[in-house]
Design a protein around this nucleic acid. Structure first.
Lengths: 213, 213
DNA sequence: CAGAGGCTATCGATCGATCGATCGAACGTC
DNA sequence: GACGTTCGATCGATCGATCGATAGCCTCTG
């Protein structure tokens, strides 16, 4: 078969959780979207909450792996930050459903299921914090409240998943580049605008997300 | 009585819809929070969806009124934009629950109920678009994609409702001022940083939201 | 001024529908 | 005949919503 039932269930859940929300999606909706009976669903998942948690962990692991690979080797904080921004924006533009589930449904998880998800998110945000702090220490970023600015930039970039459409006037490359520029400016970047290594980001996204970018 | 039952229902719905989501909140949850029986609830609302729509319209009208009052008279686009940013951030910091409902639950409304809500949101965003476009035309903003930048800034500012806590290190004034600065920088603002009229914004928020800011 | 009648606010009980989840049985493949 | 997959039928619980009834209060009337 082209795609396994297991993959169909996962994809169906991502799509429906993103558009109708976790509580707004019924087991029978899931079954219909995955082309299975509601009973068969339970051959591939635990509870509905288990399925949600697995989706979140998968998505966050993918994003974290991609970010670590893209920024491996450290180096110039400006370049690192611009790379993180470009990667984040690309990921949210090519996989808005997955992203919206991660961003919007964390609170519905029970504490036990939420804990590893939050841990992954924190690990990812530490990459951002490190780039920003290094840049501030090196004097290339001039910003008053680095921690607040990190949150502001993350929210700005995640917002892409809420409105971006590939049918719009902006190509993915322009979008990522523009956001990198916005972030650099917000951080009071004084160095010449080092162009983020967009090609590398595109390759990583293409590999991790299995899409052509 | 100090607060009417009608107000208690409204407040309970804002709180629960914000924390548990619309579909995650049951009629009986609402009733318990409002200290009424589930049957009495229906004396003050139509359907659950009607209640959600009313909350959204109320919140958006308040924000729109505040923004119009704060930017009345037009004038310097930089000052106008900074005022809009400061007001938006203050509103999202003092009323995060209300804001999260408006931002996260629009999709659950039926088309008929969603239409006026989206119209209000569009009217509000036009204030931002106008300030940005005027600034670009006047040459005080230098940004490549004004429309995309507007969306990016709006998402950045709305994100405040997701993480801000009054217990944190930043006072409301500093927060609003910092965001105004971030937005100015992102827009490539070339003029001297005109301080947003924070006092006026605070007064408007205090009046419209009925809180001391 | 007594009380009949209406209006607002409230509730316990309950409706049919749908929820998440489970069961035992049947299918095909090795 | 063992195993991985699929399903119809169905479970108890909960969902949003409605019902008729009750208690308090204001007004009009005789």
């Amino acid at each position: 078969m082209a795609v396994s039932s297991r993959e169909r269930v996962h994809a169906a859940a991502v799509k429906l959780f993103a558009t109708k929300g976790f509580h707004g999606t019924g087991i029978r909706d899931l079954a219909q979207e995955a082309e299975l009976s509601s009973a068969s669903l339970y051959h591939y998942m635990g509870t509905k909450e288990d399925l949600l948690a697995e989706i979140m962990r998968t998505a966050l692991n993918r994003l974290l792996d991609a970010a670590r690979e893209a920024t491996a080797g450290g180096g110039d904080p400006v370049h690192r930050l611009r790379t993180l921004v470009a990667l984040h924006v690309l990921a949210h533009a090519v996989g808005p459903a997955e992203t919206r589930v991660v961003d919007n449904e964390v609170d519905v998880l029970s504490p036990a299921a939420r804990e590893p998800v939050v841990a992954l998110r924190d690990a990812y945000e530490r990459l951002w914090a490190s780039a920003i702090d290094d840049g501030v220490a090196a004097g290339v970023f001039r910003v008053e409240h680095p921690a607040v600015t990190r949150l502001a930039l993350l929210e700005m970039c995640s917002g892409v998943a809420r409105w971006y459409s590939p049918l719009g006037p902006l190509a993915l490359d322009e979008l990522a580049e523009h956001y990198a520029e916005l972030a650099s400016r917000a951080l009071g970047c004084t160095s010449a605008p080092g162009v983020a290594d967009l090609r590398r980001c595109r390759e990583i996204v293409a590999k991790e997300w299995g899409v052509s970018v």
